[in-house]
Nucleic acid binder design. Structure first.
Lengths: 348, 348
DNA sequence: TTGAAAGCGCTAACAC
DNA sequence: GTGTTAGCGCTTTCAA
């Protein structure tokens, strides 16, 4: 064997047919013990590694799924990935991670990757989907959604109750005496941004507090945007005593802007983030934030994917959604307010 | 076409041979304009997507490389990934990211992935390599190394001068008047840990300061380890005025331990990290750290990979190493020391 | 329980 | 410039 040995080399050495080698490797219970040992020995001897590409080509399944996320540089997704990978490994799948960068072209690219045979399915963690692809949904590859919700696309989904999560976070601030609470939102043309904003509104309404639209700052989850929006707000002269950001990254960006204007956290402004990423715990002061069980969410998403892939084979129904709880992680970035100096515009 | 159309369907619709379809798609300049248009139209009409698996299988190249990193949850690697991906995209390659978790088995797994045809090569960002695989180096797949150095493995490498980088960081602390400087090292059985420790020693020696082995704390780059080691050191009653950590994560862990003991950063203890990840800039106080041009390093590593893959084809020489500069990013976690209270053991 | 043989979809000689 | 053809390495009927 001068080169990578193939199944024929093994068959020759073992003195059996290629079919027998293939069977020995895939369904050992189907061959006689004696034959199996012969084949195993030949595999050992030749250093045979089955060409997975040939197998994938032949069976038309890659046993690979793609985890397509909003922004790969957000560490939030790393724990998701680990969960997905764990579950995938257990089910004999591989996982690739793709970076959508909120860009239709890249999303299309990953859908094509499935069509081209690179993967069997897509786990979506993006907030939208190219319109053109929605026109013939039957042409779409097997997909599941995690934590997001995509318009005009009904798919098995791993959910958390974003409305409730945001409502609780804001209620917590209200309980601490805050009345004028800024909300740095997620993208408002997508579910995640809308749902959390809805939670924010509900908390205020429930507490019979007015909603001041000037305190709602449209964002995109990024650190930089948190900084910019908070700068702008401060320059507008608005008064507030707390900020609820729809991501830890935005919270931290906002903190930078507040400090730059000489404000202290939490004594001048309280701050709540969302996601409970590592950054929240090492930030100073440690950031109060909303925790989502990322690892478990990842595992559940992959489990849903496996079910979907199976139900595509037999004609069974699509798997049903899974819901995970969120919870507030209380740290030190919130202090109680008694309606002091920074509340000049006051309460209704 | 009831199913995914294949190249034969297109050929039939266009009234040409499959070879012509293949050529039109791969080397359009080789077919007549008129034919090309016919084929393009047929492709459009049928909705043909070439089966990449079949192509990979046939040509025995996947045009994919795997970026294998020490720990995928370290955001440091995300910028590396982006650099690799940019360069890869330009060269028509795809990139997969793998998580070695410092584990021989997982590394072997990724080497096998190449053998199985999933990828053409491996970009290694790990500090060691399974011993068994080193015995027949000619069986190893095309590989390049970035930022690391693996014993008994000579490969094209993207380097930074870790000794100099660490020396400069420590010299900076010395210049600020610090005399008793703790070093939280990387893994000491690997190049990265050793080189930076060597830089630490050189800086002290150069300044004619003694090296106190008690201030050298073996680490593994992780946040948690930084915390634990610093806790232990403080309980031992050692005195020091500054800490140089071999990663931002350890620096931040150490900061947690220092604060827990009532020490302030930087007024009580100055702190220098390594890597200049996002976390360094959002940490409070903003962390002085050593910057490495991650994006460029990623690009260079992929460029090296492409060269390696080509030289494997023709018999040309392996590409030569590339060296990148590092530099200190000065923020606010270091203040000058005049040899005050926390320096009881004094200077030589 | 095993073997023979057909082919998955594509590419690349080679012939025309 | 284009068509014919022979596989790449594997799995999977089907027949023995």
């Amino acid at each position: 064997m001068s080169h990578q040995p193939n199944i024929r080399d093994v068959a020759k050495v073992a003195g059996v047919s290629t079919a027998t080698v293939s069977r020995t490797l895939k369904r050992p219970e189907k061959v006689r013990e004696e034959t199996r040992l012969k084949v195993m020995k030949a595999v050992e001897e030749t250093g045979f590694v089955p060409n997975d590409l040939a197998r994938m080509f032949r069976t038309r399944e890659s046993r690979t799924v793609i985890l397509l996320v909003r922004d790969i540089s957000n560490p939030f997704y790393l724990d998701i990935y680990k969960g997905v990978e764990e579950e995938a490994f257990a089910a004999g799948y591989k996982v690739l991670m793709g970076d959508a960068r909120d860009d239709d072209e890249r999303i299309t690219h990953y859908v094509d990757a499935v069509r081209e045979g690179h993967a069997d399915g897509l786990i979506l963690m993006v907030g939208h989907f190219p319109k053109e692809m929605l026109v013939c949904p039957e042409k779409l590859p097997p997909m599941v959604v995690a934590l997001e919700q995509i318009e005009h696309l009904e798919l098995p989904t791993v959910r958390v109750d974003n409305v409730a999560a945001a409502r609780e976070a804001v209620s917590y601030l209200i309980d601490q005496g805050h009345r004028r609470i800024v909300h740095l939102t997620g993208p408002l043309d997508e579910y995640l941004g809308q749902a959390r904003l809805e939670g924010y509104r509900q908390a205020l309404t429930q507490a019979k507090l007015p909603v001041d639209e000037a305190l709602i700052l449209p964002g995109d989850f990024s650190l930089n945007c948190g900084y910019q929006q908070m700068m702008k707000l401060q320059e507008s002269g608005a008064s507030f005593s707390a900020v609820f950001a729809s991501s830890d990254q935005m919270a931290i960006g906002a903190a930078g802007a507040l400090r730059e204007k000489g404000l202290n956290i939490p004594s001048d402004v309280s701050l709540v983030g969302f996601d409970d990423t590592l950054i929240a715990s090492v930030f100073y002061p440690p950031l109060t934030t909303v925790f989502q069980p990322r690892r478990e969410i990842g595992r559940a998403a992959m489990a849903l994917m496996v079910e979907t892939l199976q139900s595509a084979g037999d004609g069974s129904d699509l798997p049903s959604d899974r819901l995970f709880p969120t919870q507030i992680t209380v740290r030190s970035s919130v202090v109680s307010s008694n309606g002091g100096t920074r509340m000049s515009l006051g309460v209704n």
